[in-house]
Design a protein around this nucleic acid. Structure first.
Ligand SMILES: [Zn+2]
Ligand SMILES: [Zn+2]
Ligand SMILES: [Zn+2]
Ligand SMILES: [Zn+2]
Lengths: 132, 132
DNA sequence: AACGTTATGTAATAATATAACATTTATAAG
DNA sequence: CTTATAAATGTTATATTATTACATAACGTT
């Protein structure tokens, strides 16, 4: 059950854009797309992105410097994320696999470190690109 | 058994620096440190880094835009990497856990995607920082 | 030596992200 | 309703990270 946050004006504009795009978007591409709505500066975009990441509405794809809407309703905060990334077409999808997330959330090694968060990115070729 | 690559001059300078540092280094910090050795431009650094990543001598910590020497002798190419990152002191270490790597290398879901590579980053507090 | 490949040098610029400061809006307490 | 506080916004400038483009040199193979 996802807590409903009241997104602010800028946050809503930017979340809606990313969500509708259906894929990962980069910050300056977002900026370009929202300039007609009055958001003119990079910082306005980054501030909204920071907040949206914090509350789990979007995630950052670290290897791509891009942001994608959360595709997993149970993903309330971005503390356990996994993605599959096609190295050919750059299609990204969020992996929602309870075994995987359980395995990783419970992972511990002998380093004495307590892990509170992880991000996993798988790379390969998607179905489409494989068959070409 | 790690194949011996003959590193070029710039590659060797940059690898040695990162390796000796014992931790992650950022590209422009590397640049600053090797200027006395005649490497003057960002591109010279990035080219060496690209090659070193390709042959598995270093890895990129994506969430930090930083590079670390491979701490795992069997890690010939950077196709399966896992790190633990302290969010307080930014200490990074490479996780070398055969169960984990086996689990992830064999991971597949119903997306029809064949994964050839992954990168996993765990976040938390290291032993030192936890006890403060 | 001739060839193809890899690496280097150099300048310019693109792409990504943050600092600093002023102002406004939302939320909650009294 | 007023005051206090936190959250969000607006704006300018700047810092950080990474690549394009082009010319030259070194290396490995035949
Ligand atoms: Zn999610
Ligand atoms: Zn694809
Ligand atoms: Zn390694
Ligand atoms: Zn620490």
């Amino acid at each position: 059950m996802q807590k409903e946050y009241n997104l602010s004006k800028n946050q809503k504009i930017i979340f809606d854009l990313i969500d509708k795009s259906g894929g990962p978007m980069k910050a300056y591409s977002i900026l370009f797309n929202v300039q007609k709505k009055g958001i003119k500066a990079p910082l306005q975009v980054y501030r909204a992105l920071d907040k949206l990441v914090e509350i789990g509405k979007i995630h950052k794809i670290e290897s791509r410097n891009a942001f994608i809407a959360c595709q997993n309703s149970s993903c309330q905060i971005s503390k356990a994320t996994a993605f599959s990334i096609c190295e050919n077409c750059e299609n990204v999808s969020e992996i929602s696999n309870s075994k995987l997330s359980k395995y990783l959330s419970n992972f511990s090694d002998n380093s004495g470190m307590k892990y509170s968060k992880y991000n996993l990115e798988f790379f390969g070729l998607c179905k489409k690109c494989k068959s070409k």
